[in-house]
Design a protein around this nucleic acid. Structure first.
Lengths: 210, 210
DNA sequence: TAGATTGTTAATCGATTAACAATC
DNA sequence: TAGATTGTTAATCGATTAACAATC
């Protein structure tokens, strides 16, 4: 089904984007499914299936054009749009995200942070302002943000999500170690750091598992 | 195949552990596949298949004992062992990980950080020391660490991994935005933050995709 | 005992791999 | 043209769901 992006492919898309970016930086202009597969640790067959679902990028006998393909995937991921973000929680994680140039380069710009601790109101190193969480309802409507980053304790996350949803936010990047409840029209992507650490613990004991 | 943990289940294991932990904290002593499935957003059928692969925890007519099951999964994940870690890169991410109590509670203890920038040699807020990366070969053997956290720029990560592998480290928790090469007896778990952000970008445009 | 819920087999679904004709 | 490599169909594999007998 051309145009349809399977759930499995959605998960691989960032890796495609990342590898095509480095290939482009290396000056590679075209690549075969065989070579790309080697680089990404995927079978050539899978690469062809995946890329084919975007439509006709390939040229028989030659391979795929790196730049075109990267640009297309960039658009599919929505990285050409500007995504304005607020960060809930002005601890180390929150501040690190606010100031990280990598995310800004991909269109995710932090407008402000919010924290309930009066001792944390100092702006970030890059000058992003921090406000009190009690000012959320007052300030957020004027900020025109579409994404909220949840960088606060697990027990505070659900309540804040509900408040933000009520204010119109529909996309959440969640760093709190908890599975949140949310309406069907919201999108939540979790970064459960402990989960990845547990996986490491498991794989250390079962090194042949992959 | 009892005893065999499928790759798909390995990915779900941290979520099982997390949910069983909260259930235990709530005082729930036993739970049915139906209720646990509702909570974890999995079908009861899948819950039964999953848990059954650990052996006979269930009791027909009653359900599963929460504490026993949580303890078993904890052991499967290797969280009863102490894992001594060093962190490469004493930036904000590195320091945040070193001081985070959550990871220590699960047995992952940071012994030291290493950085190549002389301006970053100050110990962390919790008093974990920082050393120069040039001292790695000298200091690491006496630290008895088994895990290395890569919290440094993408272009430095591969070289450091190679050095650490030569020093006997076989487990890596990688925060650098790059896919690393490593021998088959090493284990690398990636935390590609940008990747999760790309996924968010995609899902914001395709909210019905899940 | 009757009701609830597991353990387990069979059916289904989706994703990956293999194969090869089409074609640049 | 000959060689390389895609696009696409078919075969395989693995994971999920459905169903129900076993049993607490």
């Amino acid at each position: 089904m051309a145009g349809y992006v399977s759930e499995a492919l959605v998960r691989r898309l960032p890796a495609y984007y990342r590898h095509l970016q480095s290939l482009e930086a290396e000056g590679v202009v075209q690549i075969s499914s065989k070579d790309l597969g080697e680089r990404m640790q995927l079978t050539p067959s899978q690469i062809r299936q995946d890329i084919n679902s975007f439509g006709g990028f390939g040229r028989q006998g030659y391979g795929y054009p790196v730049r075109e393909l990267r640009e297309h995937i960039r658009a599919v991921l929505g990285l050409n749009l500007e995504h304005r973000m607020v960060i809930l929680g002005a601890g180390r994680i929150g501040r690190a995200i606010a100031d990280a140039a990598v995310f800004q380069a991909d269109g995710f710009v932090t407008i402000a942070l919010f924290d309930s601790d009066p001792d944390r109101m100092e702006a970030t190193a890059q000058g992003v302002p921090v406000y009190g969480t009690d000012q959320l309802e007052q300030l957020l409507p004027g900020m025109y943000v579409t994404v909220a980053v949840l960088a606060l304790p697990a027990d505070a996350a659900q309540k804040i999500l509900d408040r933000l949803y009520a204010l119109g936010i529909r996309a959440f990047w969640n760093f709190a170690q908890v599975d949140l409840k949310y309406p069907r029209d919201a999108v939540v992507v979790n970064v459960h750091l402990s989960d990845t650490l547990y996986t490491l613990g498991y794989r250390m004991q079962h090194p042949d598992s992959l």
